[in-house]
Simulated scan of single mutants.
Amino acid sequence: IIEIGQYWWNMQGRKAVVAIQRVLGHYVDTFSYYSPMAIRNDNEAYQHIAYSPIYPKFKVTDILRRNGFKDNFYGIVPTKFIPALLTDSRVETLLKAGRTDHLRYFLGNKSAFEELWQSYKIAVRKGYDITDISLWSDYVDTLRRLGKDIHNPKYLCPTDLKGEHDRRYEELLRQRERKEIEQKQQKAMEDEKRFKELKSKFFGICFTDGTIQVHVLESVQEHLEEGVSMHHCVFSNAYYLKEDSLILSATIEGKRIETIEVSLRTLEVVQSRGVCNKNTEYHEQIVNLVNANRGLISRRMKATA
Rank of each mutant, 00 (worst) to 15 (best):
Q6W: 00
K15D: 01
R22H: 11
V23T: 15
V23S: 11
G25H: 14
Y33I: 15
P36T: 07
I39A: 04
E44M: 08
E44G: 02
A45W: 00
Y46T: 06
I49W: 00
A50H: 03
I54G: 06
P56G: 04
F58N: 08
T61Y: 07
R66N: 13
R66M: 12
G68S: 14
D71W: 00
N72Q: 11
F73V: 06
Y74A: 07
Y74D: 01
I76H: 02
I76C: 10
V77N: 07
V77D: 01
P78N: 08
P78V: 05
K80H: 11
F81Q: 03
I82S: 07
A84E: 04
L86S: 10
T87W: 05
D88Y: 05
D88W: 05
T93P: 02
L95D: 04
K96G: 09
A97C: 10
A97E: 15
G98L: 10
T100C: 09
T100L: 01
W117M: 12
Q118N: 12
Q118M: 00
S119C: 04
Y120V: 01
A123L: 07
K126T: 04
K126M: 14
G127P: 00
W136A: 02
W136L: 04
W136V: 03
S137W: 03
T142M: 11
T142R: 09
L143P: 06
Y155N: 14
L156F: 11
L156R: 03
K162F: 13
D166S: 10
R167I: 05
E171W: 00
E171M: 09
K179Q: 15
E180P: 01
Q185P: 03
E190C: 07
E192F: 02
F195R: 07
E197N: 07
K199A: 06
G204R: 00
D209I: 05
V214E: 06
H215A: 14
H215E: 12
V220D: 01
E222F: 11
E225D: 15
M230N: 12
H232E: 11
C233Q: 01
S236V: 03
Y240N: 05
T251R: 13
I257H: 00
I257L: 05
I257C: 09
L264F: 12
R265Q: 14
V270R: 06
Q271C: 12
S272Q: 04
V275T: 03
N277G: 03
N279D: 02
H283M: 00
H283W: 01
Q285T: 01
I286R: 00
R294Q: 15
R294F: 09
R294C: 11
K302H: 10
A305S: 13
